[in-house]
Design a protein around this nucleic acid. Structure first.
Ligand code: FES
Ligand code: FES
Lengths: 163, 163
DNA sequence: CGAAACAGTACCAGCATGGTCCTATATCTA
DNA sequence: TAGATATAGGACCATGCTGGTACTGTTTCG
């Protein structure tokens, strides 16, 4: 559960990879699906599907025709993994009763916590939004650690049900 | 994407509900699946499935036989929604290459960010772990807001690729 | 002993995922 | 201009998972 789709996983891998290559060449490299397929081991048609999605979302620029391919223009630390997820899997919506979701929750009328899922959802989106591709490229040791702690779930922080 | 299963959603609803009823009766009420099905509108067999899961995970105590049912023993602010999610959907594992996951990521060998998904995953788990059933029962206004912000993804915090 | 209620498991339909393929279009090179 | 290269866009299908159902066993109360 709570699994993001394989396509999204691929997408992150590819974006990181492209960023790294870009860094080495210190220029905007144009990647063909064939090249990326080779680099990552993901079958070519699938690579195409992923990149199409990313380009539609504006995370990549596509260049058609011979000598064409995909170009990353934003640097790795300007792209969050949340953006990538949303590009391929649509808006992050934990439950059916979250704003972005299309169909509504079955128990909506009896459940007194409609709005609360939104908060939880936002928190997760925020956590995902904090992590950039640059972070993903780091060795685990230097990883920034997306902030979430602050209060273990036993204690009341300040905004809790104290009021 | 990023959707938690309906069963989990139900589970949270039921747990919140039971907690509330418990509060009113100021005692450990025993709930039958029939009762909960009526209260929530979820079909009885499905309720049973959900509660079985919760009881197996130790979030509920089951009482068999006539006059039996399920009893919540922990108070609402002692149960995080992360626990509920894990009870029904198994460990939270964003991608295949996260610790808890069984099968391994296809691109594992070429991808230089194995460990990093774990961090992201932990962050989410932490966010989910901060939110208790008591929080979910609150009206949205008083909701604690699980902490995640702290740094927008544009700036380098300290541990970024500065080194 | 019989009714009530959970436990466990097997089963099945529907749907989403993800992988493939085909056609159209744009661009470069010869 | 012709042809090769590469993406765009979509249709397509197989597989697996989700969630809902049913049935049988077991425990407890009366
Ligand atoms: S869980 Fe869906 S409306 Fe409350
Ligand atoms: S994304 Fe799976 S190992 Fe890197």
């Amino acid at each position: 559960m709570m699994r993001l789709s394989k396509l999204t996983d691929y997408a992150v891998v590819m974006m990181v990879h492209m960023g790294q290559v870009n860094d080495l060449s210190s220029g905007d490299v144009t990647f063909t699906t064939a090249r990326l397929s080779e680099d990552t081991g993901v079958p070519q048609p699938t690579v195409a599907k992923v990149l199409k999605g990313l380009s539609r979302a504006g995370l990549l620029r596509s260049v058609r025709g011979a000598q064409g391919g995909y170009v990353v223009e934003r640097t790795a630390d300007e792209v969050s993994i949340a953006e990538i997820i949303q590009a391929l899997d649509g808006p992050i919506a934990l439950t059916a009763c979250v704003d972005g979701a299309d169909d509504s929750c079955n128990v909506e009328n009896l459940c007194g916590m409609r709005g609360n899922w939104n908060r939880v959802n936002d928190a997760i989106q925020s956590a995902l939004g904090q992590v950039t591709l640059a972070d993903m490229a780091l060795t685990p040791m230097e990883f920034p650690v997306p902030d979430v702690p602050a209060r273990a779930h036993g204690q009341s922080p300040s905004t809790s049900r104290g009021a």
